[in-house]
Design a protein around this nucleic acid. Sequence first.
DNA 1: CGAGCGTTTGATCGGTGTCAAGGATCGTGG
DNA 2: CCACGATCCTTGACACCGATCAAACGCTCG
Lengths: 250, 250
Amino acid sequence: MFKPNLSLQPMLDKLSLWGNLGAADRAAVLALPHRVRVYQPHQHVVRERERPSHACVMLSGFSMRHKLVGDGGRQILSIHMKGDFVDLQNAFLGTADHSVQTLTRCEVALIPCEAVRELALARPAVGMAMWQDTLVDGSIFREWLANIGRRDARSRVAHLLCELGLRLKSVGVGQASAFELPMTQDQLADAVALTSVHVNRTLRNLERDGVISRSKRSLTIADWAKLALAGDFDSEYLHLEDRELAAVCA
Amino acid sequence: MFKPNLSLQPMLDKLSLWGNLGAADRAAVLALPHRVRVYQPHQHVVRERERPSHACVMLSGFSMRHKLVGDGGRQILSIHMKGDFVDLQNAFLGTADHSVQTLTRCEVALIPCEAVRELALARPAVGMAMWQDTLVDGSIFREWLANIGRRDARSRVAHLLCELGLRLKSVGVGQASAFELPMTQDQLADAVALTSVHVNRTLRNLERDGVISRSKRSLTIADWAKLALAGDFDSEYLHLEDRELAAVCA
DNA sequence: CGAGCGTTTGATCGGTGTCAAGGATCGTGG
DNA sequence: CCACGATCCTTGACACCGATCAAACGCTCG
């Protein structure tokens, strides 16, 4: 008989959390045509202005989305990890409005855009789940806007660390309060709209105050309450609760 | 016979631009149950942390989405105008992660969340069109992130003015290069993450340089090329072209 | 005509950026 | 296993953009 390829399982798991997928839906997701590709660190997966023919799902490793501005500055827009459907929007909008680049070595599944569109139409429940995922994406962008626009350096960094911790835990890569930072201080800086020099000072301050501790790239959140307070962090915007609620109702 | 209520027409027009809606789809959109409500300036339409029972569509006037941070700061996340489906995400995520408030007097259509969900499932083409609209939303958030994170005051303000001009034109409320600013300098400041004092100085500089001219709330873009250059503005992120392309292909 | 809100302007302050140099760590090849 | 170069981290001195504070001005609408 036909044995389904399981490489898309992490993405399916994430979609299933919304609780509306039947067995046929799940099978259809796993049956999406795709090929797995390995990217080395710092490689481009999508470049701004391209019209990608494939959408990509993260299987392992970390990647980011970013934009370059006129004077050469870079703004990192989001961080992606196992199970994330990184550039789903390209399948529906056509032109990429930002670039996607790896942070670490990554395994990525490339799915033809057309297959994604067809699946969304043929199986509305799957389409809705993917839609909900992109809505959470949007919510995270909004929180980042508030973070970068209206918080000071210490809060911005603390907020990002809280988010990374929670998201890593939610996909089962380390714990919320102890994980490997997948990015350099330069990259952290471009994520929170500071300079790497200032991120460095901010991290050391948080460490001096006993809120976090670090060694190499591994980060430990010594006092989650303090860090969340410093970062004005409230996990609501990740909509983890809403996902559970939706699943229970279904 | 049954005469359809046409108040949702502006929203339908916007969805139709994606080019995939049949006659039955369009009728179903117009048939969405709803009631029209008038809001005065500065009124809340949705508050953060609520679980709204209705999604709202802008029929006239202007509104905004915003978040408050711990120290009392406010970040405006987006500006909404005729035809915008403002808080579609609440229909699918449950808890509002931000507030919606009017800028001017507004007419708003309130649609039960459940009706929106049912329509998206029953008519996948409509669901896709709504999805695409929210994807453009996401693209605008990303551009704002880059704007606020990596551009200086002059560029930020110029960029916002360009965006407003284009969007107003695209929904037929004034021209791209001459329109009524729907917001105070205080609100402009919270949209571009500056203080109103600095926004004021920046606007006067742009005026002194002959890039724009103002009288009361009405704004004229004297030199679009200069303003776009100053704002590092490239309209690609609004995906207006992609929308036309999609419509032609369909 | 007065109250309230929004705009304008000046003086000063402070958080982050910039520049520069040295130190640590990592990957790679001999 | 060590040497080397490249990348990343750390630190200090100083500059500057935009914030803050304060006050006056001008509309608009009772």
